[in-house]
Design a protein around this nucleic acid. Structure first.
Lengths: 194, 194
DNA sequence: CCGCTCATGTAACTGGTTACATGATTTA
DNA sequence: TAAATCATGTAACCAGTTACATGAGCGG
């Protein structure tokens, strides 16, 4: 067995199966869809091949459960899967876990000088509006986990709340920075620092 | 022309070309590599086909510059490219810009109950350690842009600093949550909430 | 009986990664 | 002159997406 490194999604699925007991691929998809992160689509096309892969690599084992004519395939963690989960969590932390969080708003803000001052003001408003929608998602997630009593699930909510607070504070600074007149860059060409 | 929606990377590259004047694919790669975000690898295999694509779609135009035997292909923004950049930035903000930031540390923290309390403590230490490395990257980016005078470039640094502060605060809460004894979940099985 | 949710899959695609390959120019 | 950097590409691969397809069971 080649034992290649598991992807983030694969590892996360191991975590879900560990945490929520034997699960069908369908249930895994639902859990993923409820997650506040939009990182993955949780489409059938990703999950069904993924669990099949994890079973072939002995991280998951499955059992067919038959209720009348309908059947469901339950996936459970193997000891190998449990070890893989722990090693994914760390320590040591995988290199790819050491990142500045990626924020599409930040990516766009970098080029705000391409807009007029009034467009920039409207951009900040739209971004703050967008965060209201994000807040709704975090709250929805929180509602699902409020009763559970798992302190680590609560930390996901907490992360979302702190994230929102920080990005709102940042957007206020963006508004301030955008108010002053900013001209198109002088395109210093070759010597330009990035 | 089909005019399909540009990817985040394609749009970001338009932004770089807009901001930093005519650029070669090689320079675009360097700029991307300096960026604090690890979102993209900036490999030759992604950038060269990408700029070729953007030229075919008329978002970029290129000119071959010949200095002696060596030649470089400079890409510049077309009016269509400029319009595409502005429409990517928004407003309105694209649906995919409306996200909870994705943090690999949060993904892992969700399953910290799979570790022993002492492992959890070491995990938090490792995570804080990792953020020191992230801080180094943010500072390096800042050093490149400190002199530039572009207030929107400065906001990228600022975003990174606020991001670090918030994640450190969150990790302190993780430590607090992890100190109490937390047993393996009772695997409530079918009725389990995610 | 209609529509919804449960449940499982497949096929084609695609954007980006990894690894390889080549050659010119600059610097130690 | 050797190593590093500039500069441009290609080919194979891969994880995840989109879209399609099927059928059972259930509630109104």
């Amino acid at each position: 067995m080649p034992q290649r490194r598991l992807s983030e999604l694969e590892s996360f699925v191991l975590g879900l199966v560990w945490r929520h007991g034997p699960l069908t691929a369908y249930e895994i998809r639902r859990l993923l869809a409820q997650s506040p992160s939009t990182q993955w689509t949780a489409s059938a096309g990703s999950i069904y091949p993924l669990v099949a892969r994890l079973e072939r690599s002995r991280h998951l084992k499955s059992a067919l459960e038959r209720n009348g004519r309908r059947s469901r395939r339950n996936y459970a963690l193997t000891p190998l899967g449990h070890a893989a989960l722990q090693s994914w969590i760390g320590p040591p932390l995988d290199e790819q876990a050491i990142t500045v969080t990626h924020d599409p708003l930040r990516s766009r803000a970098r080029f705000l000088a391409a807009l007029t001052p009034s467009q920039r003001r409207r951009w900040v408003d739209a971004a703050l509006e967008a965060l209201v929608e994000v807040e709704r998602r975090v709250d929805a997630w929180h509602a699902l986990h409020a009763s559970a009593g798992d302190p680590f699930a609560a930390l996901v909510t907490r992360h979302g709340q702190l994230d929102l607070a920080f990005r709102r504070a940042w957007l206020r600074e963006v508004r301030a920075a955008g108010s002053g007149a900013v001209s198109r860059p002088a395109s210093a060409r070759r010597g330009a620092q990035p």
